[in-house]
Design a protein around this nucleic acid. Structure first.
Lengths: 290, 290
DNA sequence: TGTTCTATATCGATTATTTCGATTTATAAA
DNA sequence: TTTATAAATCGAAATAATCGATATAGAACA
């Protein structure tokens, strides 16, 4: 049984005239006749009663007709789904991001989901290492992180913008107007810091140890949003990438002085595999925003 | 798109290994690879990401998989329906009959529907001429009537049993013990006769006119069962084919004397068209009974 | 009743497609 | 690196689909 045979059978059953059906299907009457016979042989039943010139559906033919139609309809539906996928009318996009890039991400998907409301979006936060693993195992379609731009056979890493490791203070804070601040000055501030699982914390620790410093016991939180809320009270300050400020108009990010304080925000996509259209659309939005 | 390609695709998607899938499908890896590529070309999307040795479903491949499965399942279901039809687990049987053969018919379909409860049965009563027309237009699958046995190119007419035009009386009637009765004697009996639309009535009229007789005004009913009920009261008698007695133990059929009083009950089936299995089964039951 | 017309079946030849085995290419594992 | 393994590709062979011509058989008509 092949779809071709079902197509031929259906038209023949509808017209009850092999010659006309063959003409409509752009094949010879002989071809149609043979293909239908082959289908009948395959099914071990007659689908038509041959009454000389005339043909008529048998009971079997009549019952099979609806299934043949449904089979073709199902196949067409499969086709349509793929077409919709290409047209971004369906599908799924899974984006990985480190917390520091929440702001860019939120802005981008706001635009994206407005433009393509039928594409469902999943966001996975995690460390750069974890997300990289996810890229390789195709758990995510792309990732936003502070990955260094580097050439790779299997990854395309594109720079978005540069962000600075910054002290985040409330606008009422005496330091709020500063253009920059040294690491030494941090020690004098009431700090709430991101947990060690965050790359920004690691980045900060490396910078401190390079100066032979370490910070006094500070509040440690494993949620960036909570840190921002703490800072928003004015009682605490925190250290984050400048890009992490989002929706907190009262907060100010003051870049830390020193080498290697700038980090490149990047979007990373797998290379050498089919790139879904929704991914291309999203990454274009991210670029236009940054 | 052909079912073969869907079959190959599904197994390949399940195993994510073309070599193994090809082996299971008893084709070469080369064949599978080419057929899948052809399917992809046809659909204008990649279904697999090729990662050197490894393959992985794309989003499109994943979405298409379920439709491919459903398509094949639907095709299989069509197959199954035909198998069920052959196994008499489904289907429809439409039987035409003249009223005189109700008894045989009822007995036969009682056995049939017990044995094949899933085959639905439709019964159409009508004149022999009407039923014959129905046979030709395939409205009915077979007919039970008093058709004369004759050879025909398009009909198979098989004798069932012989029935006599008979006077039907209650067992309490003085004539009940008679072996036969003449037409002349009918005139002296209180008769309820079948309406002129019944062939049995026509048969009787022909016999009477041959004798130069006609019956005095009698009750005329267009329902055989009602006639039998009337006879069962003992107040009336009626004239029917002997085979029409059914479920009335108190009634007796006394054959009418004269030429051409015997008629052959027959089953008529169309010739030269596919004969459904349920029809073969039913006609066998009818033969075993008669 | 025969004649013509028309629709399906069948046949042989042609063309297209599928399949295979061998080879190449790429990558994962050792 | 080398080795092993899996998919892609290629050309040849096998298979299947298609076609045109023709045979066959009801239907329509005189």
């Amino acid at each position: 049984m092949e779809l071709r045979q079902l197509r031929y059978f259906i038209r023949a059953a509808e017209l009850l005239n092999f010659t006309n059906a063959a003409a409509e299907l752009y094949v010879s009457q002989s071809t149609l006749s043979q293909q239908i016979k082959q289908l009948e042989d395959n099914l071990c039943v007659s689908l038509f009663d041959r009454l000389g010139k005339r043909v008529r559906l048998t009971e079997a033919g009549n019952m099979f007709l609806s299934h043949a139609r449904k089979t073709l309809r199902e196949a067409d539906e499969g086709r349509q789904v793929l077409k919709d996928l290409v047209d971004l009318k369906t599908g799924n996009l899974t984006i990985g991001a480190t917390y520091g890039l929440t702001a860019v991400l939120v802005e981008a998907i706001a635009v994206f989901s407005l433009r393509y409301p039928d594409v469902s979006i999943q966001i996975i936060f995690g460390s750069t290492e974890y997300l990289l693993e996810c890229i390789y195992t195709a758990k995510i379609d792309c990732m936003l992180s502070f990955m260094p731009v580097q050439s790779s056979e299997s990854l395309e890493i594109k720079p978005l913008f540069s962000a600075a490791l910054s002290l985040v203070v409330h606008q009422s804070n005496e330091l709020a107007k500063r253009r920059k601040i040294t690491l030494r000055q941090l020690a004098r501030i009431q700090l709430a810091l991101p947990a060690r699982s965050y790359s920004v914390r690691n980045h900060l620790e490396v910078a401190l140890s390079r100066e032979g410093m370490n910070l006094p016991g500070a509040i440690e939180v494993n949620d960036i949003n909570t840190l921002l809320h703490l800072a928003d009270t004015g009682h605490w300050s925190t250290v984050l990438m400048s890009s992490s400020l989002f929706n907190f108009p009262s907060l100010r990010a003051i870049p830390l002085e020193g080498t290697d304080m700038q980090r490149q925000a990047t979007i990373t996509l797998p290379l050498g595999v089919y790139r879904k259209k929704s991914l291309v659309a999203l990454s274009e939005i991210i670029f236009n925003k940054s």
